[in-house]
Design a protein around this nucleic acid. Structure first.
Lengths: 230, 230
DNA sequence: TCAAAAGTGTTGCTTGTACACCCATGT
DNA sequence: ACATGGGTGTACAAGCAACACTTTTGA
């Protein structure tokens, strides 16, 4: 009796369902977002977020769909992937009568990704979130989506809820602090920063040291996994 | 050339797309969630969140869809409505090969809603989130969805990001404090509470006063709209 | 005059910041 | 030795909680 495709549970048409990724990285001391220039209408030649159609035959979950989009279109494994919001409406995309987009924020380490144009993409580039984006028109409603993802990232870092997956697997505390300072756009106090890290058990020291120049080598740390509370 | 129904923009099947609402209210000093008892399979006779199918012909946006669901199924206007998260997967609902649910949190003032069973619903009732829910099996993956919505509400109130739409339009500070105390499950200090409210310009005094018993009447307040910053 | 709740001031703790100071290392 | 960044201790300020206190009302 059951058919290979189950009976649709409702007679109503379903929305065109997509996943968009706000891919951020800290490059050359600037927070940048990865955008693709569209090859075809609508919004041909306009910069847009990389995204893709949800494939219910291939994606086990929404997060898996976001990972697939990043892998297929950008050949990158997102270190930190977080769902931001979901938007939907009739006017969002002229290709469909109603379009729903689940928006994910992806953070990748600097240099982990060489942007290469793929299908339906003319060009791929990183844009300075603070200095290049505001003056640039973006496709669809992608401008506000980026703004909200950036604001949330900065709020997270200010609270020291650090998306540590976006860093190299090991790092020194100086590197971590510089990373936070560049994101927030202001300097942090070294002593306070380290005490707050210690209180929260966010990082743990590793045996090794690292030498960067003609001065004292730094302790190497890594992100601490789930807090064991032992 | 264009047909009434635009051409589907992709050949891929789209997910069964729904909106679920975690409707919370403070009743008899307890935080309660509104659940419906399902009349039909799957999960017949089991309690579930009220939800409905996204209707792209009638819903202008996802939030509008959530408002429609609340209006149609519960005859209530949500004072405060906030998107929580979106979940999706193949195993979530046996009726469809892949189901996506956008979850909203709705807060309604106590007594603003007389629960009446509707179509496909055998019964409607409020459940104490802390004492009744944990021992009760829920349909689908609705248990964790409620838990996350409740946790976020409590975190919001602890930070004094108050969903003031969930209260009566005017209130005294004593009522507001009692409301927060019942949500958080602990007592707050009156002086600190009022100073924090004042610093944030969350409320403003109205001309009237209110008498509740044989003692000093209280100043009446209302929620302050967008901060004018004048 | 008393009870009950409104409303306010004062003290002290907790948390984060600012700043100063040693430590280790290669040139 | 010294410049440079790693690492640590101490003093100060802001924000919040605990507590005490005064005020206003009807009974």
């Amino acid at each position: 009796m059951p058919r290979p495709e189950p009976t649709p549970p409702s007679p109503y048409p379903m929305p065109f369902t997509r996943v968009e990724t706000v891919t951020l990285s800290l490059m050359e001391a600037r927070l940048r977002v990865l955008l693709v220039r569209r090859a075809a209408a609508p919004f041909a030649e306009t910069w847009a977020l990389p995204g893709g159609v949800l494939r219910i035959d291939r994606d086990a979950s929404l997060e898996a769909a976001a990972r697939r989009v990043l892998r297929e279109r950008l050949a990158v494994d997102a270190g930190d992937l977080q769902q931001m919001e979901t938007v939907g409406g009739a006017q969002r995309d002229p290709r469909a009568p109603w379009t729903l987009s689940v928006v994910y924020r992806a953070l990748v380490p600097a240099g982990s990704l060489v942007p290469v144009p793929g299908k339906r993409v003319r060009e791929v580039a990183w844009f300075d979130v603070d200095h290049e984006l505001p003056s640039r028109p973006l496709a669809f409603d992608h401008g506000p989506l980026i703004a909200r993802a950036v604001a949330r990232l900065r709020a997270d870092v200010a609270r020291l809820e650090l998306p540590l997956g976006a860093l190299a697997p090991t790092f020194t505390l100086g590197e971590l602090q510089a990373w936070c300072e560049q994101l927030l756009g202001r300097n942090l106090d070294k002593s306070s920063f380290r005490r707050r890290l210690a209180e929260r058990d966010l990082v743990e020291a590793l045996p090794g040291e690292r030498r960067e120049g003609p001065f004292r080598p730094a302790q190497v740390y890594r992100a601490r996994e789930a807090t064991p509370h032992d």
